[in-house]
């Protein structure tokens, strides 16, 4: 049984409860009074299929697939406008990230969502050595959609790259030798521990 089906089984019709128990800050969802100030405050507003307040309503209405499969919460850029304005003090930004994260873990997040893919690339990059390999990250991003478009994007950014080289903001040798944290072993065990704690908290252990 996949994690997703396990969750469906566990919460049957109660998606709100599922969110409360599994999503970071999910217990705040019920506090929304549908004023819509968050939806209007988001600078990415027009691009949202379902703005935060609507997502909260959908959660209450049990629209599990639509919410978790939505591109919407991946739009959040953490500008915190919504949190500042929310009359109920909901940590909306965090809930959006929590929902995205949860959808991703359940394998329901839209596969091609660029934010999700960026986050994945970023994570894989940093998790390797404990420090971001900026050059590697950039190249990975450029070539995310295939070789052709990667070359195009890289060429377009060449000027910037040369400039950065000149001002020593970019180390060309990072491709071959990237300096990680001092004690990579300890870093890896730290990550492992953190994952265990997180999984336990979300009831995913075992």
């Amino acid at each position: 049984m996949s994690v997703n089906t396990a969750m469906i089984e566990k919460y049957r019709n109660d998606f709100l409860k599922e969110v409360e128990e599994n999503v970071e800050e999910g217990h705040w969802v019920k506090m929304c009074m549908q004023c819509g100030v968050c939806s209007g405050s988001c600078p990415f507003g027009p691009h949202w299929e379902h703005p935060p307040q609507e997502i909260f309503m959908m959660i209450r209405a049990g629209k599990r697939d639509e919410v978790l499969g939505s591109e919407s919460m991946w739009m959040c850029t953490s500008c915190y406008n919504c949190i500042v304005r929310c009359p109920r003090e909901l940590p909306i930004t965090h809930i959006m990230h929590g929902l995205a994260n949860y959808a991703h873990r359940l394998g329901l997040a839209p596969k091609m969502n660029p934010t999700r893919r960026f986050a994945k690339i970023f994570w894989d990059n940093i998790a390797k050595t404990g420090r971001v390999n900026e050059l590697g990250l950039s190249l990975n991003l450029y070539f995310m959609d295939g070789f052709g478009s990667g070359v195009k994007k890289a060429t377009a950014m060449a000027g910037v790259g040369v400039g950065m080289l000149r001002t020593k903001r970019l180390n060309p040798f990072a491709l071959v030798r990237h300096k990680g944290v001092q004690n990579p072993k300890e870093f890896q065990s730290l990550l492992k521990k953190a994952k265990e704690v997180e999984d336990r908290r979300k009831g995913l252990a075992g």
Partner: peptide
């Protein structure tokens, strides 16, 4: 005035 009409989501 900027916002969202929450009855049916109209920006």
């Amino acid at each position: 005035l900027h916002g969202v009409n929450t009855e049916g989501y109209h920006r």
